[in-house]
Write a protein that binds this DNA or RNA. Structure first.
Lengths: 123, 123, 123, 123
DNA sequence: GTGGTCTAGACCACG
DNA sequence: GTGGTCTAGACCACT
């Protein structure tokens, strides 16, 4: 059983599932920084997916700064995730603000919103 | 200038833009309850959009309970929006809870989250 | 004869030649802002290139903010190139600074460097 | 710690990193003229790199006139670097001119370009 | 018709 | 062996 996973039945594109999956694994420290990633072909074989699809995921992962791919040598987990972490922090804050605005628009009371927040942080 | 609007350069499907637009207009009381909606063909001409796309939006609007289509008579705004309102309220609450969970996962502090909420309700 | 061009013999990837070509055309005002781009298939037929390759170029163009692609509707030149312009300005300044540093390292005199600059701006 | 260095995680081909590295060392006088270079196999062992890759770098270095390989004897640093120096000088001047042209095209003012030059020479 | 995803298989430079 | 490019052809939702 691999730590990488994709769900064929999911409507989200496979390449996107994989990029999200790998990004999450890196951010949670489950993929050691600087470590070699499985080769495109190896990952394709492991997941039973076409190499081109894996390639697309790897390109996106490199664009996000999660991995570095070097022709002829392989792909490696980035050694610096600080930018990744702050980026995720800020986008999460923006998303929270956005859904709060929608909630207010829908008629949710200030008190109920705060209660929702406290419930989540109290979990 | 129509009260209905779709943005051709927006990535959201046009039928979805229209359903959201109409739902919003109804919930905000800008479309009188029980009123007749423009016919599919009239709406298509008004917005310069393929009638099939309008048809798809109308089907979705009926499914959501925003309008009622009567064969041979036309489409009418629903006369009871209470279900619609509570539905929107609950889905907004769920969405808020969900993005709060993501924010917590991303490392946002409880205090910052509450501040975001208060900022929104204070706007 | 099309305004779009790629050179099969060039070592630069075709998709990259096309993205650079289109970016240049947009920045020089030869492609009207907001205008519809040729469809992926049309461009592929026009240039005698596989649609997947064109698709790759269009994805990159969208990432750069040069065009906007909308499924089912088509691709359109962006309506706002200000970000594009400032970005090009800054990257050109950085490149100039970089090659100046290399020139200094290679032993070029300050006076000769300034002469090179003045020659170029005097052309 | 060797004076030769390659970065396995750099995108530049390793053979090219090595040729640039050696050329630079020679031009800066850090590799005595006429001195014997490490054998291909020794260099490969020292850097932990495939001998084929080192071989490719050595061939390129000889083509550039940085080293001279004598079959059965080994490779030696060239004894005359004047051609190398002028070549580097001219190519740096050409590169500077080229990036100046690009900067002008991007809309950089003559004054800003000159300021960039002066900043670099003033460092 | 449109863009987007995916598969299958080929070729390249690099190692 | 590696990643990257390209072709050919299929299917999808949206218009």
């Amino acid at each position: 059983m691999s730590i990488f996973s994709v769900d064929y039945k999911n409507r989200k594109p496979i390449w996107e599932q994989l990029t999200d999956n790998v990004t999450d694994l890196v951010l949670r420290g489950l993929l050691p920084l600087g470590e070699a990633m499985p080769s495109v072909r190896a990952m394709a074989a492991e997941l039973g997916i076409n190499p081109n699809t894996i390639q697309k995921a790897y390109v996106e992962l490199e664009r996000r700064g999660v991995i570095i791919s070097i022709p002829g040598r392989g792909s490696f987990v980035t050694t610096d995730i600080s930018a990744l972490l702050t980026e995720r922090l800020e986008s999460a804050a923006a998303a929270l603000s956005e859904s709060a605005r929608a909630a207010k628009e829908a008629g949710i009371e200030r008190e109920r919103a705060i209660k929702i927040i406290e419930d989540v942080w109290g979990e």
